[in-house]
Amino acid sequence: MAAGELTVSSHIQHHLTNAKMCTVDGSVAFNKACSEAGFWVLHIDSLAWSIGLGILFLWLFRKAAVKASSDQLAVPGKFQCFVEILIEFVESNVKSTFHGKSKLIAPLALTIFVWVFLMNLMDLVPVDVLPAFAGWVGATFFGMDSHDVYMKIVPTTDINTTVALALGVFVLMIGYSIKIKGVVGFIKELTLHPFHTKNVFVQALLVPFNLLLEVLALITKPFSLALRLYGNLYAGEMIFILIGIIGLLQLPLHFIWAVFHILVIVLQAFVFMMLTIVYLSMASADNH
């Protein structure tokens, strides 16, 4: 590596950059041309991989569901058993935590668990394989410089994905709060807790303080959801990239880190699912 520091850092930078798409002056532009576009950029690699993995999940599970409903009492195949084990696992977790009745929570939890797991799983694909392949495709078929082709294959290392998931959960939290307690009840919960007195004037003084605390507590939940997943996966990806640049010695190190990471990706998917259930059951609990 003749260029030393520069090559290594540009290599890492290349790995950590999403493929971007935006419109500049009314026409579609990509990557570096989008540096001025600010918010109005689509990370097409994150979108493509996450939606592709989501469709893979839905397709596989739909197949099992069709098989299961065509003959409910038939002896299930191995894949169907696997799917049903997952479903039972999610169902038991939901039942033990969420005590209301909801048709949404369990499928939501299943979707989060499997989708996040699949997106995390992309972290175990050796870091250079797919970006290099994408660079080769770009250079060969589209006449691009292979360094200008960006490909980040783990959607959960893109904060946009995790924030989107957390915002989805946040919207549901607000929705459940309002549905169970009503708008007034929700506002009361935000303003009359945790400090509550019978004296109206003292209470009026306490309301802003309560509001600050409760809104903070509310906002922290999606933030922690999004940042926990993003941070864990981003750090894991970073270490894979660092291991990937040290030459032959990377093989045992990569193996060790990958084995450890198997735990991390399952755990993070599970934590995201569990916290979603917990937050939603807190949102729909009537007493504070």
């Binding site: 999403n18 971007k20 918010f39 109005w40 950029v41 689509l42 990370h43 994150s46 979108l47 996450s50 939606i51 989501g54 999940f57 839905l58 599970f61 739909r62 569901a65 048709k103 949404l104 499928p107 939501l108 299943l110 979707t111 989708w115 959607p155 893109d158 946009n160 994905t161 924030v163 989107a164 998931l165 915002l167 989805g168």
Partner: peptide, 22 residues
């Protein structure tokens, strides 16, 4: 970036599909 909106739409669609058909 705008990716958030795209991912949220995808998330919502996936959850709804799972809730209805899986």
């Amino acid at each position: 970036t705008l990716t958030i909106i795209g991912q949220m739409i995808a998330f919502a669609v996936f959850v709804l599909f799972c809730m209805k058909y899986i």
